[in-house]
Design a protein around this nucleic acid. Structure first.
Length: 351
DNA sequence: CGAATTTGACCGAT
DNA sequence: ATCGGTCAAATTCG
């Protein structure tokens, strides 16, 4: 029975089941005799479970294909039957069907890689590359990444990274999905690495020209995001195919206070929706997330919202040792100043 | 040897 | 047929 489900379904089921069980537990603890802390903890867990489940649903666009469960059900990800490399047989996963893939990118970030041709710095999460594509009309290929903990924790976050055509020091990064993993990343371990200096893998057994493309993601994300980040977001999915805004007060587990960009993705559609997306077109709201000290420059600016998808662009000057990025226009930074008062480890939007 | 990347094929949408 | 996103076998990395 469960054998036949793919991991997504299992994860989803697990989360929901867990939510239910936890809720029951909570009910038992509702007596005055119980400690409020316990309840609090349970509550958090419950929320997290549901959050995760919701994000999965959101992610998959919601379209399940009710399938005669229990029988057959090919081998989705595990693959058993497909012995031949090219899978033409085509029993693929249709357990969940993807809905239009077009929209759904939550946000787009422009990242200026610090030193000349470094890769697109790390954002504090562990990503695993799962594809790369040449994009029509672009000179540079686009790389597709998903959270390393996808299978282990069911974390659905993904991102795509593409070097800007115009300015090769800039990477456009689009994030989608929210991290539900415990960002197992270290970051305490990296003791202010300043020099990644020689990352020269001397031997180029195969020199595709993409050595630059790789050798990025190392664990020094620290410097990367610490410069502060301004984000502007807006609704980007036509509400109709989005989840009927749910709202958990959720207040994000900001345990480490590492940057929290990801947190808005889902929230945008979910929690914050009511608050933020009203006049869909306006270019009004932005959040500013400025996790760390040192942010001495944070210029945000927005470019135009893209045609249909309204993913917008935010610029995140992340640089290592660099002066405030010059290439992004400084035109509109008056109003967006950096607010130093921002709590570093607890973000709360909403003025 | 396990984990991450590379890369061409597959697939859904257009 | 084309394009963008994903899969997964093969390959490389650590």
């Amino acid at each position: 029975m469960e054998k036949t489900m793919d991991w997504e379904q299992r994860t989803l089921l697990n989360e929901l089941t867990q939510g239910k069980e936890l809720t029951n537990l909570l009910r038992k603890h509702l007596h005055p005799s119980s400690s409020p802390e316990t309840c609090q903890v349970l509550l958090e867990k419950i929320l997290r479970s549901y959050e995760k489940a919701l994000s999965m649903l959101n992610w998959r666009g919601f379209a399940f294909e009710t399938k005669p469960t229990g029988s057959t059900l090919e081998s989705p990800a595990g693959s058993i039957a497909n012995s031949s490399p090219g899978r033409e047989g085509s029993d693929k996963k249709d357990v969940f069907k993807k809905r239009k893939t077009s929209s759904g990118w939550t946000e787009q970030v422009r990242v200026c890689s610090g030193t000349s041709l470094e890769g697109p710095l790390d954002d504090g999460y562990c990503w695993r590359k799962y594809g790369q594509k040449d994009i029509l009309g672009s000179n540079n290929p686009r790389g597709y990444y998903r959270c390393t903990h996808r299978h282990s924790q069911g974390c659905l976050a993904t991102k795509q990274v593409q070097r800007s055509d115009r300015d090769p020091t800039i990477f456009e990064v689009k994030y989608r999905g929210r991290h539900t993993c415990n960002r197992a990343s270290h970051f305490a371990t990296t003791s202010v690495p300043v020099t990644r200096a020689s990352k020269e893998k001397g031997n180029h057994s195969r020199e595709k020209q993409q050595l630059e493309e790789k050798q990025k993601q190392s664990q020094e994300m620290f410097l990367s995001f610490e410069t502060g980040l301004k984000v502007k977001t807006e609704d980007l999915d036509n509400r109709e195919d989005i989840f009927p805004s749910f709202s958990f007060p959720v207040e994000s587990e900001v345990e480490n206070g590492i940057f929290v960009c990801s947190l808005m993705e889902n929230d945008i559609m979910g929690n914050l929706s009511a608050a933020f997306i009203s006049p869909a077109t306006s270019e009004s709201n932005y959040f500013s997330v400025s996790p760390c000290q040192m942010g001495s420059f944070g210029l945000g600016h927005n470019v135009q919202t893209s045609e249909s998808d309204l993913t917008e662009i935010i610029s995140a000057p992340t640089s290592v040792t660099n002066s405030p990025i010059g290439d992004l226009d400084i035109s509109s930074l008056d109003k967006l100043e950096f607010d130093p008062t921002f709590p570093s480890d607890n973000l709360e939007f909403f003025p």
